[in-house]
């Protein structure tokens, strides 16, 4: 009875319009399953057996991507409840904790962010120790390094949003480094020499830290700026580079193995 219902569904026009192959039981349908699915076809059809062993890749790249998706989903949900202005931000975080159903969103988002940083470091260590950055994968390693920087910037910008003591002072410590940029920060070396016609090019209201914070200290402008960077600019950049990163894995010969 039940199996005939399943058979009916599997032979229906709707089912066949979605999955253009039978159940992946033999070689042909398994190949089809990967090739005819937009997500699965990121993979090649066949891979080295030694390459997919957990003790070879540790699945850390995959986990990093999984955490990126988890961050994107919980991040969108968090945006429903959060307003990036100093008067509201902290209370919105409190409300997330106490009023919102399944109030784990922020926890998953925050611990996921930390886990993503750890996973990306371990992924890099694996790629390094297996020599997988060597030709022909040089360029993809570089893309990966940029992705590492973006991930740390994502985490850094997100750190400010709860607008508590931990947030503004951690960002103050970090953004103070901008003031020390050689030539572009007010307290940086050689900045005094950057002049145009005797008029200082770099002032407290135009130096590198000011561009980052839109102010001379961490205030409401910095909160808005970090919010937009955190929710729009950096995730978009990361998504584009992830697409390049994955595409290049395939083009450069898949999971690495001895040449």
């Amino acid at each position: 009875m039940i199996s005939s219902v399943f058979d009916y569904i599997r032979n229906s026009q709707v089912w066949n319009s979605i999955f253009r192959h039978g159940i992946p039981r033999d070689r042909r349908t398994r190949v089809m399953a990967v090739m005819s699915n937009v997500f699965l076809h990121l993979h090649p059809v066949a891979v080295r057996k030694s390459g997919i062993r957990l003790s070879f890749t540790w699945c850390m790249g995959g986990l990093t991507f999984f955490l990126f998706l988890a961050e994107a989903i919980t991040g969108v949900l968090l945006m429903f409840y959060y307003r990036p202005v100093p008067e509201r931000a902290f209370m919105d975080i409190i409300a997330l904790r106490s009023h919102v159903t399944l109030g784990l969103l922020r926890e998953i988002h925050r611990w996921g962010a930390h886990a993503m940083i750890i996973a990306i470091w371990l992924h890099m260590m694996r790629v390094f120790l297996t020599g997988s950055y060597k030709p022909p994968r040089e360029f993809n390693w570089g893309v990966g390094v940029i992705l590492l920087v973006i991930t740390m910037l994502l985490s850094f910008t997100g750190y400010l949003l709860p607008w508590d003591q931990l947030a503004i002072w951690a960002i103050t410590v970090g953004s103070n480094m901008g003031k020390a940029t050689p030539g572009f920060g007010m307290q940086g070396p050689l900045t005094d020499f950057v002049k145009i016609g005797g008029i200082p090019f770099v002032t407290p209201r135009s130096d590198a830290a000011f561009i980052l914070l839109a102010g001379t200290s961490v205030g409401e402008n910095a909160l808005l700026r970090f919010y937009v960077l955190h929710c729009i600019a950096l995730p978009l950049a990361a998504a584009v580079l992830i697409a390049i990163h994955f595409w290049r894995i395939r083009k450069d010969g898949g999971i690495s193995g001895p040449m």
Partner: peptide
Amino acid sequence: VEGKDDKVLVWPDLVYTE
């Protein structure tokens, strides 16, 4: 381990691990 050149299909081996 790495020296062996045998290949497996992504479905099911890799998809399963993932």
